[in-house]
Design a protein around this nucleic acid. Structure first.
Length: 154
DNA sequence: GCCAACGTTGGC
DNA sequence: GCCAACGTTGGC
């Protein structure tokens, strides 16, 4: 598998790095975008590293690190009529939506804000920084991961 | 809360 | 298969 590094977005009001630290592990449910689903279903491997990104936050940015803790399986919230992420088109025999389990690794002592990320050199081409990029699950190039994690007190 | 940039849906 | 209308994301 080519990619071993990922970035996954969550709104901290809904589920933050502190929630993951408390739970230890969580189902990354509610992804309803095909590209994001495909990354989880087709490419993620147990043990892959994940930037836990706080979106729609004050400030937005990378809050810590998590890791992929399961292979992809059907997202149960798609079958649950009472769930906000319910999708009547997804059938149990042939699920539309998938998720992986994500486990807590660390919370950064120094939150890495989007502002900091933008100021960082060597991130040319990083998906997160592309205008209009909204993908909530995205691959991170190894060199970008290194640039962001090395030479910093995180 | 605004709104630009995307993604999806559905009429034709 | 086109594309307008609509819904969502997410920075600001």
């Amino acid at each position: 598998m080519p990619t071993k590094f990922w970035l996954m977005k969550s709104e901290p009001d809904v589920y933050s790095i502190d929630d993951l630290a408390r739970d230890g592990k969580t189902m990354w449910d509610g992804v309803r975008n095909y590209q994001a689903r495909n990354f989880m279903r087709d490419q993620m491997q147990v043990g892959d590293s994940v930037f836990f990104y706080h979106s729609n936050a004050e400030p937005s940015g990378i809050a810590g690190i998590a890791k992929v803790a399961s292979k992809a399986y059907a997202d149960p919230t798609a079958f649950d009529k009472k769930d906000v992420h319910f999708d009547p088109k997804s059938k149990k025999e042939e699920p539309t939506w998938f998720l992986v389990d994500v486990a807590f690794v660390k919370k950064f002592k120094n939150f890495l804000s989007l502002d900091d990320i933008k100021k960082t050199e060597g991130l040319e081409g990083m998906l997160l920084l592309q205008k209009g990029s909204r993908l909530s699950v995205q691959p991170v190039a190894e060199r970008h991961w290194k640039v962001l994690t090395q030479g910093r007190r995180l």
